[in-house]
Design a protein around this nucleic acid. Structure first.
Lengths: 328, 328
DNA sequence: CCCCGTCATGTTTACGCAAACACGCAATCA
DNA sequence: TGATTGCGTGTTTGCGTAAACATGACGGGG
C-alpha cells in the first residue's frame, strides 16, 4: 500500500480512500492511484482491514453435511446468494449431532473471523434450546423456533398436509408414513402435520416408521410395509426414502400406483424420472436461502436481531406414483 | 488478551505462548493463564494473528456448484478432511464457466485471506490452460493435467473401461454412450476410454449422445436411443443420466435388462434402489478429498509445489440393470 | 568458584490498514 | 472584508497478535 502511495505520489490514506470508494477523492488522483495499483498488482490485505474495521465480509455456515439432498441444495443456494451480496461463505460440517459439537463449530467460526453464522440445524440437539454465546448474529435454517434467533424454513407442515390430503382425496382410507429421523425438526413437523391431517379426516392413524433420510432406510421401511395388508398409500418424508419404499414395493410384486400410491417430499431433480415419476412436495430452496442471507446481512449491518420466523410455502407436484386405491 | 494477562499476572506474551502451546511455559503459569482465559471468555482474534503470521488456516474452494452429486460429495469430503486438519473452508460457487469467472473467484478468495485454493474444475474453460496468478498454492480436482498445478482425480478412463468391458463381456455387440457435457474433463475422459475400449474389441463405435449430467438430459438421450433399433447396451456417464435413460426406455416399453442393459457412473446412494438397481462405477470421493487436502497442506507448509497427479482407482458395481443381450 | 548455557518470562516492535484529527485552500455568506 | 463552511489531502494513532530481543535466575562443568 505504501508502494502504491509513493508511486502515485499521494499518502497511503488516499490509497485507502480509493480502495474503499470514498467520495472525497479528486477524479484525477483516483485514476493515478488506480493505475499504480494495477501496475504494482496491489491487493488489500483482508486481515489488516478486518483488524481495523472489525468486519470480515464472511458468513459462517454450520451444517450437518452435504450428504442429504436438502442440505446440499440449501448450502448451494446460500453460497450463491451470499456471494452476490459480496460475502464469502466459510463452511463447517458437523460430524456428531450434539450441542457440544455445534458449540465447537461455533467457536471455531467466530475465531475464524465471520460476521455472522447461519446454522442449518437439521438435527435436534440433545438440549431443548441451544444456547449460543451472544455477540454474533445468527440465523437458523430448519431449526427450532424455541431458539432465540431468527429462523427461516419451508412450511413443512403445510407441505405434509398437502400430500396427505392429496392421497386421502384420491380415496385412500388412510396414509402410512415413513418419517425422517426422530431427531430432525423437519421430520417431526412433517410427521405431526401428517398425523393431524389424518385425524381431521377421521382416518385411522397407522404406526409411523422411521428412516434416516436415506434410500436404504426407505427400502427397509418399504419391506415392512409391503408385507402388511391394506397398505394402499405411503407418504415418505423425503424423495430418497420414497425411492427406497418404491423399490421394496416393486420387488414385493406390487404395482405403483395401481396397488400402492407413494409420495415423497423435496422434489429432487431425479424424482420426475423415476419409474413411475414421483408425486412429491417441492421446496423452494432458493427463496429460503435468499431470506436467510438477507436476514443475516440485515442483522450484521443494523446490529439488531429481528426475531422473525419466515416460512416459505411449498407446492404439491402430482406425478404418476399416486392414484386411486385398488378396488378391494 | 491484555485482560487475560493482567488477570493471570503475566505478560501478554506469555498468554500468547499458552494459546500457541509453546513448550517453554511453566505448568503452573499455564494453568493460571488457561483459567483466566476461561473466566474472561477470551477468544483469540484471527485477523490480528493472521496479520502477524501471514497464515489463515483457511482453504479456498472454487466449485461449479453443488447441483451435481459428484461435486457435492467432493466438497463435503473436502470440508471434513480439511476440518480435521484444522483448516476451515471458504467456498465460492462459480456461475458461468469462463476463465474470467474463475479469475474473479480466485481474486476474491486470495483477498479473503486463504492459504491455498482447491479448484474443482468440473468444466473445461474457454482457454486451453488456465493461468492463475502465482503465489498461492493450488490443487485441482477433476481438472486438466496441462495446468501446472498438482491434480487429484478418480481414474475416469479406468472406470469407463470397466463398464464398457463389462457390457461387451455380457455379449453385447456394442455399447452406446450418453456422455456428459462436452466441456467437462471427466466427461471427455470417460467418453474417450469408452471409445478406445470398443475399438480394441473391434466393436462398431456408435455415435455419442451428449447430456449435461442431469436426469432430464439423460431422459432426452434415452428417448432417442429407445427409437433406434439394435440398441442393447447403454453406458451413461453418470448415474443421474442413467436414471433418465432408464425412464425413457421403460416408457418406450423396453424391459431392463432383458431388452436393454444400462450402466451409470458415480454410484450415488440411490442407485442401489432404482428399479432395477443400477450397475455403475463407484468413485471414492473420500480418498480423493484426502489426497487433495494433504497435497494442499503439504504445499502450504513446505512452500513447494509437488507436480504430482494422483489418480484414484474406481470400482465396478454390478447390479441388475445389466445382463445378456436379447436373443435376436 | 566462576562462567556460561538453559529456561521462564518480560519488553519492544511490526504486521497493513482505516479512523480520527489536522491542515490549507476555495467558495459562500453576512 | 472577515468569518464560515466544505473539500481534498496528509499525519498520527491504534486495532490484537507473535516474532525478536532482553532479562534474570538457576545449575552444572571446568
Amino acid at each position: 500500500m505504501a508502494d502504491v502511495a509513493s508511486m502515485a505520489g499521494v499518502s497511503s490514506q488516499t490509497v485507502s480512500r480509493v480502495v474503499n470508494n470514498r467520495s472525497n477523492v479528486e477524479e484525477e488522483t483516483r485514476q493515478r492511484v488506480l493505475s499504480a495499483m494495477r501496475v504494482l498488482g496491489y491487493r488489500p490485505n483482508t486481515a489488516a482491514r478486518a483488524l481495523v474495521t472489525g468486519q470480515f465480509r464472511t458468513l459462517g455456515l454450520i451444517s450437518f453435511g452435504l450428504g442429504s439432498f436438502g442440505n446440499a441444495r440449501t448450502v448451494d443456494a446460500i453460497t450463491r446468494v451470499a456471494q452476490r451480496a459480496g460475502y464469502t461463505v466459510n463452511m463447517i460440517a458437523i460430524e456428531s449431532q450434539t450441542e457440544q459439537a455445534v458449540h465447537e463449530a461455533f467457536d471455531q467460526l467466530t475465531m475464524q473471523a465471520v460476521d455472522g453464522i447461519v446454522l442449518i440445524e437439521a438435527q435436534i440437539l440433545d438440549t431443548p434450546a441451544l444456547r449460543l454465546p451472544p455477540g454474533v448474529p445468527v440465523v437458523m435454517a430448519d431449526g427450532d423456533a424455541s431458539h432465540r434467533h431468527p429462523m427461516v424454513d419451508t412450511d413443512q407442515a403445510f407441505g405434509a398436509r398437502l400430500v396427505t390430503r392429496h392421497l386421502l382425496d384420491l380415496g385412500h382410507e388412510t396414509v402410512w408414513h415413513v418419517a425422517g429421523p426422530e431427531d430432525s425438526y423437519a421430520a417431526r413437523r412433517r410427521a405431526e402435520a401428517w398425523h393431524a391431517t389424518l385425524k381431521e379426516a377421521k382416518a385411522v392413524v397407522p404406526q409411523v416408521l422411521f428412516g434416516d433420510w436415506s434410500a436404504a432406510s426407505g427400502y427397509e421401511a418399504g419391506r415392512v410395509l409391503a408385507e402388511r395388508p391394506g397398505v394402499t398409500a405411503v407418504f415418505a418424508a423425503n424423495d430418497q426414502m420414497a425411492l427406497g419404499v418404491m423399490r421394496a414395493m416393486i420387488k414385493a410384486g406390487w404395482r405403483i400406483p395401481e396397488d400402492v400410491s407413494i409420495a415423497g417430499f423435496d422434489d429432487i431433480d431425479e424424482s420426475a424420472y423415476l419409474s413411475p415419476p414421483l408425486t412429491t412436495v417441492r421446496q423452494d430452496f432458493d427463496v429460503v436461502a435468499e431470506r436467510i442471507v438477507s436476514l443475516m446481512i440485515g442483522q450484521i449491518e443494523t446490529g439488531t436481531a429481528p426475531s422473525a420466523t419466515a416460512f416459505i410455502t411449498p407446492e404439491l407436484i402430482v406425478r404418476e406414483s399416486t392414484g386411486a386405491p385398488p378396488l378391494s
